[in-house]
Amino acid sequence: MLFLEYTLNGLNTGILYGLIAIGYTMVYGIIQLINFAHGEICMLGAMVTATFLGWAFGVDAIAIPAAGFVVFMTLAALMDGGFGILLDKIAYKPLRGSSRLSALITAIGMSLLLQNLAVMIWGAGANTIKVPEGYTSTAILQIGGRLGIRITFFHISIWLFTIASMSGLYFLVQKTRFGMAMRATAQNPTAASLMGVRLDKVVATTFFVGSFLGAIGGVAVAINKGSFDYQIGLYIGLVAFAAAVLGGIGSIPGAMLGGIIIGVVEAWAAGYLSEIPHPLVEGGISTGYKEAVGFTVLILIILLRPQGLLGSRGGDRA
């Protein structure tokens, strides 16, 4: 019973990691860039959503209409998608053709820049996203008594959204001409562009989709956590990046799978680490390792399967 609850908690967090990881994996798949600023894009998504909701319904609003919530979140996510494209145009595009590490450092620079701009705009304090009444607290399904498992509307909606967006992405990448262009670019950009694929457009779309999902993921993470500040992107970004690598970087279903695995393992760690006696000192192993467990699993899996769970082996990198 308790195990089930931990697992459910883990799944709920894991799919959010997965949503954000998709942004990493798509960008990496196309241009082999670890987009360190992606976490900050997610943070911006949450910030903008909170701002819009504050403007529309007042900063102290207790309950806001569900439709308004969806509209403003979508608007913010679309803006964020546009911002992703802008990020690529301003920061990364001039560096196509130069060393990958230069692009990585640019991404780090962007991350620092965005974080501190966010502080200057929104302040350093924690922020909350107002949600429709009962959205995160009302149990749709309650197993056990007051202290039992609760599944709320929030959980159901993120699951539905994840399923919908994964199917949408599958359709986009596998079934459309544009998806074919994307896959071709990922395999061999030079050949793809010779075949008439417009690389810039493919890259821009990748950034848009990644940032859009990242923004929704950022909002959901902020709601799931309870509050957020300008630093939320940093660590979420690292975990999501780890999830993307775990699942096989470049693979979209892999990113989701990686996110879920890390989420679930972390939740189990929170629940059971302290039950394991510490070999050297009295008491159990600290739950402080919760965040290390995800990375440990990542390292183990990479050792067993260097290309990640669903990744394909690289060609010329033997």
Partner: peptide, 8 residues
């Protein structure tokens, strides 16, 4: 720094 949620 790294905690992402407190549910678990």
């Amino acid at each position: 720094k790294s905690v992402t949620e407190f549910t678990s």
